[in-house]
Amino acid sequence: MEKKSFTFDEIKLKLVNYCVYQDRCHAEVEQKMKEFLLIEEAKEEIMLYLLKENYLNEERFTRSYIRGKFYIKHWGRNKIKMNLKQKQISEKLINSCFNEIDEADYEKTLQKIYEDYSSKQKSLKEYQKKAKTIKYLMSRGFEYESILNMLSV
């Protein structure tokens, strides 16, 4: 299959639309650019344009990613952080954006997932049920300390 070739302006527009559709991080845009055989200068020019026109904004991306993964997918902070790091977002930026998650919402969500999952664990002794539920919550990215705090209340 032959690759269709696009003009520089067509590629630029495609990348603008890619960023408009949903917030993207630099790594995703760079990955997308690989589809088009661009020289380094062209890539840089497009990146600068996307940044200058605010189509590409790493902080906005990080904030919306955190909100989405917590409020929609119900991930804990650890899993969110790990996934953002894979997208080459700096730890400093990640930590400064975690205020997108309301602490009371975080505790409520943790409590709800704990209760939902725990109630499905039939025919287990109480301590087994608790251990299995804690393990599950940690796999969802919730911090061990947060889980213990919730249990001690």
Rank of each mutant, 00 (worst) to 15 (best):
M1L: 08
M1N: 09
M1R: 08
E2S: 07
K4H: 03
K4N: 02
S5T: 15
F6I: 08
F8R: 10
F8Q: 06
K12L: 13
L15P: 00
L15M: 02
V16S: 06
V16G: 03
N17C: 09
N17Q: 11
N17T: 02
N17M: 04
Y18K: 01
Y18Q: 01
C19L: 05
C19T: 01
V20S: 03
V20N: 02
Y21S: 03
D23G: 00
C25S: 04
C25M: 00
C25V: 04
A27S: 11
V29K: 00
E30L: 14
E30T: 03
K32V: 00
K32T: 00
K32P: 00
K34P: 00
F36K: 00
F36C: 04
L37A: 09
L37Q: 13
E40R: 07
E41C: 04
E41A: 13
A42R: 06
E44P: 00
E44Q: 14
E45W: 01
M47A: 04
L50Y: 01
L50S: 01
L51A: 11
L51K: 14
K52E: 12
L56M: 06
E58V: 11
E59D: 10
E59S: 10
R60N: 08
F61W: 06
T62E: 02
R63I: 06
S64E: 14
I66A: 01
I66Q: 01
I66L: 07
R67L: 15
R67W: 09
G68Q: 09
K69W: 12
F70Y: 10
F70N: 06
I72D: 14
I72S: 13
K73S: 15
W75R: 04
G76P: 04
G76R: 02
R77H: 08
N78W: 04
I80H: 01
I80L: 06
N83T: 09
L84G: 02
K85L: 15
K85V: 08
S90H: 09
S90P: 03
S90V: 07
K92Y: 11
K92G: 07
I94S: 02
I94Q: 00
N95Y: 10
S96E: 15
F98E: 09
N99S: 15
E100D: 08
I101H: 11
D102Y: 09
D102H: 13
E103R: 15
A104R: 11
Y106W: 07
E107H: 09
K108R: 13
T109E: 14
L110A: 05
Q111N: 15
D116S: 07
D116P: 00
Y117L: 08
Y117K: 14
S119G: 05
K120R: 13
Q121E: 12
S123P: 02
S123T: 14
S123L: 15
L124D: 06
K125G: 05
K125S: 12
E126V: 11
Q128M: 12
Q128D: 14
A131S: 13
T133R: 06
T133V: 10
I134D: 05
I134S: 03
K135L: 13
Y136T: 04
Y136N: 07
L137P: 00
G141P: 01
G141N: 02
F142L: 04
Y144C: 04
E145K: 14
E145Q: 12
S146E: 10
I147T: 10
L148T: 10
L148N: 12
L148W: 07
M150S: 10
M150A: 10
L151I: 11
V153E: 15
